[in-house]
């Protein structure tokens, strides 16, 4: 089976993650959608690394993992800070800023 199928799988996972970010109001769920999108891109990178027979794709995927870990730490800290200030993690609450 051609490894390009894994790229198709990655595209499907990316779309599901994007749908979660667009549809869900819970900040944590939307954030998990972002994680899924990052992982889908990782899968595509590793699949391309296999297709081309080069190791660089795997190194890129490793870097994406590191950046994703840093992003999770800061993002969850922001969610906690917002929850402390507003007692909610709904993404629509900041819409009150419209006045």
């Amino acid at each position: 089976m051609d490894p390009i199928n894994f790229v198709i799988l990655a595209a499907i996972l990316f779309a599901i993650g994007a749908a979660a970010v667009l549809l869900r109001r819970n900040a944590i769920v939307a954030f998990m959608g972002v994680e899924l999108m990052l992982n889908a891109s990782n899968l595509a990178l590793v699949a391309f690394s296999r297709i081309h027979g080069e190791i660089d794709g795997q190194v890129m995927a490793f870097f994406v993992m590191v950046v994703a870990a840093a992003e999770v730490v800061v993002g969850l800290a922001i969610i906690i800070a917002v929850f402390r200030a507003r007692q909610t993690i709904s993404l629509d609450e900041p819409a009150e800023l419209k006045g």
Binding site: V7, L22, L23, R50, G53
Partner: peptide
């Protein structure tokens, strides 16, 4: 949101299925 996400997925899948990349014979060692 649903239409955008579905469209994105269909777009990506249609492009990926259309290309053909020759697969390297020897696998990589990670």
């Amino acid at each position: 949101g649903l239409v955008t996400a579905l469209g994105l997925g269909a777009f990506l899948v249609s492009i990926v299925t259309r290309v053909s990349i020759p697969v390297a014979e020897e696998g990589v060692s990670g």
